[in-house]
Design a protein around this nucleic acid. Structure first.
Lengths: 262, 262
DNA sequence: CTTGGCCACTCGTCTATACGAGTATGCCTC
DNA sequence: GAGGCATACTCGTATAGACGAGTGGCCAAG
């Protein structure tokens, strides 16, 4: 068994007020912060840490659990514990829905990812009619039924976002919006062609830990929160024409907004 | 020892593929979601769950840990494990920095909290001059030194937000901006009085797990992420006149923005 | 009645051990 | 050389036990 690299980790004080597993977590955290363990690199194994600190395995695992829930490291069964690499971040600009950005053939997600040098994918595409939930119904002005479009976005094979759009059925039925591929410019272009000129979007941003289902869908390591974004699109007559409910891996996104000073 | 309320929790299957502690976590989660355990109420004690499921204490603690890191429950030493109440949420509107909202005497935070029926406080106020970090320096156009204003906001005694403002020293030195209380309308009003008419704000929104220091400062339960918001204020000449770096308890906030469709 | 202490109950920390399951590697066989 | 298997190493799960420390209620002494 390889020893822990010397000088990187010190000793613990069992008589200290601070719990031993916290002291170990502190030392590992500091070593990571200082770059002693680089992004993506392997930490000493549990057995090595047990040896080095002279504690039991559960104590070591406890300290690893602390850092995992902080999002600093992630354990891989059979391989080891690794410093979590910071994934490339997708920046969502505040003008991302401007008309000029509606590309001819491809969706905004594809265009943007291509430009950033990532390999974009969309999967789990599902389009159907449903009875809206209370919340969605209220946001859309109480339609009896809605068209629901679900899809998952991936970058370089990693799922980063799961989005569900809701549109009042009278706007969507029989149009390309009700088809899996809504055509160039996406559903917003189709809405405007149908005479619903878009005026503005409202977005609500929350952050929280993922549900187990969300963690699975986005393949989230523990310690990664999600950004929950609910966008409502309004036409020039003030009617809500779409609600898009999106759950994003928080470590893959930064949202940018511009606020007026007036 | 009180038994677990009958009918609320079932049994586990030790032969299942799914780990026993996950099965227990699943059952507790479902019971909470269904309202069998209400917000703020006490879950069965570890000893009771050990008894009920016929497993060892570490297994029960493991399942409790799962739900804690999901932000569903929180354990209190000596008291028990409780369903985390959802705290009142502060909604930040996209027009929150509009001039018309600059109240005469009090800060935006105080006015808004009063209106919402909460008891607002500001503490840890600190104003000083510092050499800016690389990032702040770049955002502000590389000033040699900056005025730094730190403060913590609380609602009903609970810390919800920690904010640090940076201003180029030439704008701030010798003005009320450099005083702990900048006066009616806050530092934005002082900037405009000094001839720096504000044009717009850029905001960057990220979500992540808190550092240990942040968790302590905001008294965050485990399983609560933070929203990290960096706002830059620009005057009508395009100069960045302030950067505000804010860390917020994610369960206390929803951010609202309006995006143009053009 | 008040106060102090005891006690029961709670979660927190830690040890020691055992076995299972995923991964990588090297060696042996074909 | 290619394939397959054994093996060693990794983390995952679970048991049983011990002591510590925070909380709150009860009761007896003052």
């Amino acid at each position: 068994m390889a020893p822990v690299p010397s000088g990187v980790l010190g000793a613990v004080d069992p008589t200290s007020d601070r719990a031993v597993f916290r002291q170990i977590a502190d030392q590992l955290r500091e070593a990571i912060d200082r770059g002693r363990f680089k992004e993506g690199s392997k930490l000493p194994s549990e057995a090595e840490l047990v040896e080095h600190f002279g504690v039991s395995r559960m104590t070591v695992r406890n300290s690893i659990g602390v850092l995992q829930s902080e999002g600093l490291i992630s354990a891989e069964h059979g391989k080891g514990v690794f410093v979590r690499p910071r994934p490339p971040v997708r920046r969502l600009a505040s003008d991302r829905f401007a008309r000029r950005h509606r590309d001819q053939g491809k969706s905004a997600f594809i265009v943007e990812a291509d430009a950033a040098g990532s390999r974009p994918e969309v999967d789990s595409l599902e389009v159907r009619e449903e009875k809206p939930s209370r919340d969605i119904s209220a946001r859309l002005g109480s339609p009896r039924k809605v068209l629901v479009r679900r899809r998952r976005y991936l970058l370089d094979g990693r799922p980063v976002e799961f989005a569900v759009s809701y549109l009042p059925l009278d706007l969507a039925r029989g149009t390309r919006i009700a088809e899996p591929n809504p055509g160039p410019g996406g559903i917003y272009a189709r809405l405007e062609e149908a005479g619903h000129r878009l005026d503005h979007f409202d977005e609500e941003v929350r952050a929280r830990m993922p549900s187990p289902g969300e963690a699975k869908m986005l393949r989230l390591a523990s310690g990664v929160p999600v950004i929950h974004l609910v966008r409502t699109a309004y036409d020039t007559e003030g009617r809500a024409v779409e609600v898009c409910d999106t759950v994003m891996a928080a470590d893959a996104y930064v949202l940018a907004y511009q606020l007026p000073a007036t």
